[in-house]
């Protein structure tokens, strides 16, 4: 009896502290539940049901998934989404690194450079999409055509050339986000000990070798993280293709998220939209899994 009582006492003291801590976290956790977790689960549920307006009607098994895969635009959107990812790796991954390295090498106006490259990041994305859409106008009055026309170039088709649509959209994404990423690289670069460079210089390393053997290895870890975060975010591209060309020309820029938006809001088919977003989530979870593994390894090292 005595023994038992003591144990309960000890535990209850411990419990009270835990309880208070959980209570402190409860409001925030509820917000997470409402805005993040519950919709994810709700999505999975909805994906198995037919709906009328936004009301659940019947359980229809995998029919929504079949409908998504058979959708006339699905293959185009699926391929494009990977094309977005591919181009964003090619363009969006290296540009911030280069910006970071270059600005690190300046001594004049450094603060101004940092500010300027970050500036696109604070501009509201909607406003920048509208602005870019006029930059890409194909006629002689398109802003880029005006600028390149001054250099004696013929007007270009820009987004209307299906081969260029996705790369150009990725360039606008990079324009917007590269500065922020570059700042992170710069912070990493500036934390490299000067001794390393000095030692390398004594060993006779030139500028290029120093970049390769000292700068590059020191930012590779953070670069991996940036890479996966970038893939995840570009996988959900929606507004740019929607406002630029509404997914055109002839589906050349339609993305999976855009398709989901159409199912949900144009066709009022919530079940189908949910099925597609579950599919996207599965892909993202796989990508996230890779990320988790990569960072776990990094921490071990």
């Amino acid at each position: 009896m005595k023994k038992g009582k003591r144990r309960t006492e000890g535990q209850s003291g411990f419990r009270k502290k835990d309880l208070m801590a959980w209570l402190v976290m409860t409001p925030s956790l509820l917000l997470f539940a409402f805005f993040v977790w519950e919709p994810l689960i709700e999505n999975i549920r909805l994906s198995f049901f037919s709906t009328k307006m936004y009301q659940v009607v019947d359980f229809i098994g995998l029919n929504n998934y079949k409908a998504v895969i058979n959708d006339v635009d699905f293959m185009a959107a699926f391929k494009n989404t990977f094309a977005y990812t591919f181009w964003s790796l090619l363009i969006g991954f290296f540009v911030p690194m280069i910006i970071g390295v270059l600005i690190s090498e300046t001594v004049h106006l450094k603060g101004f450079f940092r500010m300027a490259v970050y500036f696109p990041n604070i501009m509201p994305s909607l406003a920048t999409i509208w602005i870019w859409s006029y930059f890409f106008l194909p006629g002689p009055t398109g802003v880029l055509n005006i600028l390149f026309g001054k250099l004696g170039m013929e007007p270009f088709e820009w987004l209307n050339n299906p081969a260029w649509t996705i790369p150009l959209i990725v360039i606008t994404l990079t324009w917007k986000s590269a500065g922020a990423t570059a700042l992170i690289y710069m912070a990493n670069i500036s934390s490299i000990s000067p001794d390393l460079y000095e030692a390398a210089t004594i060993d006779g390393a030139g500028i290029i070798q120093r970049v390769r053997h000292i700068t590059a290895p020191s930012i590779i870890g953070i670069a991996k993280t940036m890479l996966i975060l970038q893939i995840i975010s570009v996988f959900q591209i929606l507004y740019e293709p929607m406002i630029f060309k509404n997914g055109g020309p002839n589906n050349a820029s339609i993305s999976l998220m855009m398709l989901m938006y159409r199912y949900g809001y144009r066709d009022y088919n919530v079940g189908k939209a949910a099925a597609l977003s579950v599919m996207v989530c599965i892909i993202l979870v796989i990508l996230s899994g890779i990320y988790m593994k990569a960072t776990a390894k990094k921490e071990e090292n």
Binding site: S133, L137, P138, G139, P140, T141, P155, L159, K245
Partner: peptide, 10 residues
């Protein structure tokens, strides 16, 4: 004929 506006897609 090439008689359309610069960008019918817009």
């Amino acid at each position: 004929y090439d008689v359309l506006t610069a960008d019918p897609l817009s």
